[in-house]
Simulated scan of single mutants.
Amino acid sequence: MSKPLPKPVVSLDQAQTQIIRYGDALDRSPELLRRVSFTRSWYALRDGETWRFAPSKFLRRQFERAEDYLAVKGHPDAEPDGDRTEKMLRQWFAVVPPDTRLASEVTVALEAFLAAYGKRRREEDRINVLHDELEQIRPGVLRRADDDRAGRIVSDPAICGGRPTIRGTRVRVTDILEMLASGAARGDILRDFDYLSEKDIGAALGYAAGMIDHRVIRAA
């Protein structure tokens, strides 16, 4: 006889709890980490000065551990697909509008989150935030991490759609994260982009680190 599934998520508080639980579960489960590559819809929660993330399927039920989530596959009471979960979550979350300050902020944060696990974000991935976050969208300068006090990371609507870049270049913070996540050493990046400096790479990592709640990347 199959073990009963955890109860469905039915409130915003429960959904937020699941986002927080996901990060802890991911650190403890290689199989859960393997499944990260299959995620296309991410849900983001601002936690102080950082962002936390979880895939929509982890917000379906009140999973306390990775094992609870992994046991759903093949369970007789499991939902047939994720559409029902997506529809349920729309009462609290919505996709971040592109070309906004908020889109730049959460995209960099998601890139950093995934890079910490050696993963990369795909262009088709969707990022959803709370409705309250969307109500506060307004033009302005991106918040910057302490490592960026020298002004090396800038956001100009006329350059790369306002995505944070290295000052005086079209190299995005996410470009640097992706190269490091793909296995490139800092020296490789500096050889390929001879107009960048070690401090530029450090500033990009520092900026990204300010968006998540753990170390960004393990890079040579």
Rank of each mutant, 00 (worst) to 15 (best):
D194K: 11
A219I: 06
T39E: 13
S56M: 15
A158Y: 12
M88A: 12
L205S: 02
A25F: 06
K3P: 08
I217T: 12
W51L: 12
L5N: 07
A203Q: 07
W92C: 02
S56I: 10
L32M: 11
R101C: 09
K7N: 12
L59K: 05
A66S: 07
P55I: 03
T17N: 11
E105R: 10
V129M: 00
G168R: 12
V96E: 02
A219W: 03
G202S: 04
M1W: 09
T165V: 13
M211Y: 13
L45T: 01
K87G: 02
L12R: 09
R143W: 11
A208C: 01
D175A: 10
P139Q: 04
R126E: 15
R218S: 10
L114P: 02
G161T: 01
T100M: 03
A220F: 12
G187V: 12
P139T: 10
R172C: 05
L142A: 13
I189G: 00
G206A: 11
R84F: 11
E79P: 06
R120N: 13
S56P: 02
R61K: 06
Y195S: 02
A109I: 03
L196A: 08
L26T: 01
R101D: 10
A145S: 15
G48P: 03
A54V: 06
G151M: 06
S155M: 10
A112R: 02
R46K: 04
R40W: 09
R138C: 04
K3E: 15
E49C: 10
D156P: 03
I166K: 02
E133G: 05
A94W: 03
A208W: 05
F113Y: 15
R121G: 09
E49G: 08
K119C: 09
R138M: 07
A112F: 03
Q136W: 07
E105K: 08
D68T: 07
D125M: 04
D99K: 12
S197E: 15
R40F: 07
R52K: 15
A209C: 06
L59H: 03
A116F: 09
V141R: 06
